[in-house]
């Protein structure tokens, strides 16, 4: 038996971004970029994706760094999720990511899965996009036309749809350096460890004398993109994360979200779970989580 699941394609392993741009020019919309492959390869195996060319960017040097500058924490597009999760720099300067990443699949997925791949895919249930929106991160993309920076809050446009142009390659995300009063917390509810989240919540704020300032509550799994719960944020702003405040925010979140029903969970169940998560996660904002 000759086992071949994907449709045939040509395989390209460019050594530089410039070569990637050449390949994208040549193949146009028939090419797909292969980073960690943890979403693309299943799509190839099931022939949901049938590109004629696969452009493997894994050997392009300089795209997998995790480094700190005055600007913030830079996570290269090819930084593996497992490396980011365990990075001391990430634990110190973006602890929200270190909390969220253990929920992304399993170890054998995260050793290959990349930051850039997850962000560029824009899966509505993915953890990283919600975290980047909560942290006010920036997505950097490069094309032959030059480089540009896109705020994470404007990057995710719909289900598997982002602000990336067809000729652009995501090169890194930059998470701003948190101040000493920054707090962040993440949690999600899924059927089993490692499954896609039914609902996930990434939360961040500043905490001053026990009072939450500029809270950002970003849900995943409830719409085509990460969703900021602005009514619930308003219910938390300027207040302490105490039970009556959390209850008010949990009621407010129902007005922020209109989650879809699918085989995993109904819309009303997701809305209920969002309120459950909100109480849990917002309470942790007050404790330094």
């Amino acid at each position: 038996m000759d086992a071949m699941k994907p449709a045939p394609f040509t395989y390209h392993r460019p050594g530089s971004l410039s070569e990637v741009f050449d390949l994208l020019d040549h193949h146009g919309g028939d090419a797909r970029i292969l980073a960690g492959g943890q979403s693309l390869v299943p799509a190839l195996n099931m022939r949901l994706a049938t590109p004629t060319a696969v452009i493997d960017i894994n050997r392009i040097p300089g795209l997998d760094g995790i480094r700190l500058t005055t600007e913030g924490l830079h996570l290269g597009a090819l930084a593996r999720q497992d490396d980011v999760e365990r990075s001391p720099l990430v634990r110190e300067h973006a602890p929200l990511l270190a909390q969220a990443l253990p929920n992304v699949g399993h170890v054998a997925i995260r050793t290959r899965g990349t930051i850039g791949g997850s962000v560029a895919l824009g899966d509505p249930a993915a953890e990283l996009p919600a975290c980047l929106v909560a942290l006010g991160a920036t997505v950097r993309a490069t094309s032959r036309r030059g480089a540009r920076a896109i705020p994470a809050g404007e990057f995710f446009r719909g289900i598997y749809t982002t602000a990336l142009a067809p000729d652009e390659v995501l090169t890194e995300v930059v998470v701003p350096r948190p101040g000493p009063d920054a707090r962040a917390a993440f949690d999600e509810l899924a059927r089993r460890q490692g499954d896609f989240a039914l609902v996930a919540l990434a939360a961040a704020c500043r905490l001053s004398d026990g009072v939450m300032l500029e809270p950002r509550l970003v849900f995943a799994g409830v719409a085509g993109t990460p969703v900021r719960a602005t009514r619930a944020e308003a219910a938390l702003a300027g207040r302490r994360p105490e039970a009556p405040v959390l209850e008010e925010a949990a009621r407010a979140v129902a007005g922020d979200l209109d989650p879809p029903s699918d085989v995993q969970a109904s819309g009303p169940l997701r809305r209920h779970l969002a309120a459950v998560l909100l109480r849990r996660v917002a309470a942790r904002l007050g404790t330094g989580s």
Partner: peptide, 21 residues
């Protein structure tokens, strides 16, 4: 998970990596 192997010391899914990689 049945296809799990190690590549350069890291645990990976053998079905989600191409042989050419």
């Amino acid at each position: 998970g049945a296809c799990t192997v190690r590549v350069d010391g890291a645990l990976v899914r053998g079905c989600l990596m191409l042989a050419v990689q």
